[in-house]
């Protein structure tokens, strides 16, 4: 049985966007799109999340934060980079402190294009991510006991 696909919880982080993409992400939660239909909840807490939605480009200030949030999401997890900024740095690309897209600091599974990305494509991106999530879960299950032993440690 796989419940993962039926209950993807997301955390949304705004790296350094113009806030255009963020508004579109939040739009997906409104009654018009109502992503909760698919069991999607915006948790705001990496420890509860399965899908990491990042908008905007990564800069010197927030690269640690992006990494930190990524690390605090329990496996299996996927990263969805939303908007052109998150893909490549977009219009902020040339800024002195901007590193570029999200993939500069953490592995990204799905890129959603658009400036700003439309809610439909964001939802589409998340649905694509669900497929990847499922493969990751199976991979994790196979590794199973192996990883268990390695990661275990005392208080």
């Amino acid at each position: 049985m796989t419940y993962l696909k039926k209950s993807p919880w997301v955390i949304h982080y705004d790296a350094s966007s113009c806030n255009g993409c963020d508004i579109e992400v939040l739009a997906a939660l409104t009654p018009v799109y109502d992503v909760e239909r698919f069991g999607i909840i915006n948790t705001g807490n990496p420890k509860h999340a399965d899908i990491f939605l990042v908008t905007g480009s990564v800069n010197e200030q927030n690269k640690e934060v992006v990494k930190n949030i990524y690390e605090q999401i329990p496996e299996p997890k996927v990263v969805v980079a939303i908007g052109i900024c998150a893909a490549s740095g977009g219009i902020f690309r040339e800024c002195y402190n901007v590193l570029g897209g999200v993939d500069k600091v953490i592995p990204v599974d799905v890129f959603v294009t658009g400036c700003a990305a439309r809610p439909e494509s964001i939802i589409d991106g998340v649905v694509t991510a669900l497929g990847i999530l499922e493969t990751k879960r199976l991979a994790m299950k196979e590794k199973g006991n192996e990883t268990m032993d390695k990661s275990g440690s005392a208080v």
């Binding site: 982080y13 949030i69 032993d149 990661s151």
Partner: peptide
């Protein structure tokens, strides 16, 4: 439960926390 759990630092709103309870 002694084994099999991954340890992470407490959630600090995305801030990294060192083991000495200090954050940037």
């Amino acid at each position: 439960y002694r084994t099999g759990s991954k340890h992470v630092s407490p959630y600090m709103g995305g801030r990294t926390m060192e083991s000495e309870m200090r954050f940037s």
